[in-house]
Amino acid sequence: MSKEHDRGMTIIVKTVTRLTVGLIFLYGIYIILHGHLTPGGGFAGGVIVALSFINVDLAFGGKVSDRIFSKGSTSVIEALGGVMFLALALLGLQWGGFFDNFLHPDGEPGMLISAGIIPLENIAISLKVGAGLFAIFLTLITLQKFESEKK
């Protein structure tokens, strides 16, 4: 993704971004997956994941980030997150009620695989929040581009 030297910011920013962006992304994933154990969760993790994409967009310009994660796919992923969350809630109806934690008995407290459907819901939320935030960013950016082109 470094081929386009003429777009985006300087080489320093690009190099630093290249080094850090994977770490930021992974940290987001960590926060999402440990949402039921430590502070954080789907929303905070989703924001961090979105930040990693925003970093790429800022440093390398819209074309590169568009190749990784285009505006069309943000809305699809966001909707997917919503559907997943809703499906988990509705699956609970099978066992006892809306949002029933039907995986609850599995796993012991404090371990990674525990808390039933809550980690799964965290993943759904992170999809929705991450894609949604990135979509908001892209919308504002494209509006700005649209304005500068008009002038």
Binding site: I136, T139, L140, L143, Q144, F146, E147
Partner: peptide
């Protein structure tokens, strides 16, 4: 408060998008 922050985020994002369009 987390919920209300998220709602605030949505409102703010919408208002800013409107502001940009109005400026246009």
């Amino acid at each position: 408060v987390l919920t209300s922050i998220v709602i605030g985020l949505a409102t703010t994002a919408f208002l800013i998008a409107l502001a940009v369009r109005l400026y246009g």
